[in-house]
Computed example of a mutant assay.
Amino acid sequence: MELNSIQPAAGAKHAKRRVGRGIGSGLGKTAGRGHKGQKSRSGGYHKVGFEGGQMPMHRRLPKRGFKSHLLQFNAEVTLAALEKLGAAEVDALTLKQAGLIGQQAKVVKVISTGKLTLAVKLTGIGATASAKAAIEAAGGSLA
């Protein structure tokens, strides 16, 4: 193979569509835009969600619910994740370094999903009632 014989794969390159360049091109006169109307004009098009003046869907439907911006500071850890971590003493910093919770998390809670066989000492971390029972049954503690 020589550098001067290298070619792109067949079908990889194709000529750009040159519109408005005469009848012979097949894309002259209206340049493939059809006749009249908003879509034929330069700078004339609608914004996302515009329904031709009809009240748009996102304004016809009622607003519902609320999502607190404080939720980004809450995090959950499963018993299975604690088992996989395998540390004897666990606090929020340990979980952040292991990537089990986000860096912004302030309030951490253990939930009862999976099984725990290791004795784990939790400091500064909450737990649900069933998770607390499971941790204490495995010989761990919450502080």
Rank of each mutant, 00 (worst) to 15 (best):
K36P: 00
K84R: 15
E2A: 06
R59A: 13
K36E: 10
A105W: 04
V77N: 03
A75C: 07
A12H: 07
T94V: 15
S42R: 01
V110D: 04
F73R: 09
L100A: 13
L82A: 13
A134D: 14
A134P: 11
L142K: 02
G43R: 02
G37Q: 10
R18F: 00
L71I: 15
G99M: 06
E89C: 02
A137Y: 00
F50I: 00
F50S: 05
T94L: 12
P62N: 01
T78W: 13
A87K: 15
K67R: 05
Y45P: 00
A119I: 10
L100E: 14
P8D: 03
P8W: 01
A131D: 12
A88Y: 04
K106L: 13
A10I: 13
A9F: 07
H69I: 06
K36G: 07
G26I: 10
I135K: 04
A15F: 03
R60E: 09
L71A: 13
R64Y: 06
G99V: 08
L3V: 04
V90S: 07
Q103R: 05
G26C: 15
M1S: 13
A131K: 06
K13E: 13
K121Q: 12
G24F: 11
G99F: 08
E51R: 00
I135Q: 04
K63D: 07
R59F: 08
A131T: 10
T113D: 13
L100G: 11
A88Q: 11
Q97K: 14
K67H: 01
A98M: 15
A75V: 12
L85I: 12
G44S: 11
Y45I: 02
I111F: 12
N74G: 01
E83K: 03
G124Q: 06
V48N: 05
Q103Y: 00
L93A: 15
K13I: 14
A31P: 05
R59Y: 02
A134S: 15
K109L: 06
E76K: 12
G99L: 07
K115S: 10
N74R: 07
A88L: 10
I135T: 03
K109A: 11
A133S: 15
V19P: 01
A10G: 08
F66G: 02
G32Y: 06
Q72D: 08
K84W: 15
A9W: 07
G114L: 12
L142E: 05
K84F: 14
K96D: 02
P56K: 04
Q54D: 08
K106S: 14
K84C: 12
E76L: 13
K63T: 07
L70D: 11
R17Y: 03
M1P: 09
L27G: 02
A15N: 04
R60H: 13
K84D: 15
T117L: 01
V108C: 08
F66K: 02
T113A: 12
Y45F: 14
G24M: 11
V110Y: 04
K36W: 01
A143I: 01
L100W: 11
K29G: 02
A143W: 03
E136L: 10
K36S: 09
L85Q: 14
G22F: 15
S112T: 04
S25W: 08
K63F: 05
R60C: 10
Q7L: 02
V19N: 14
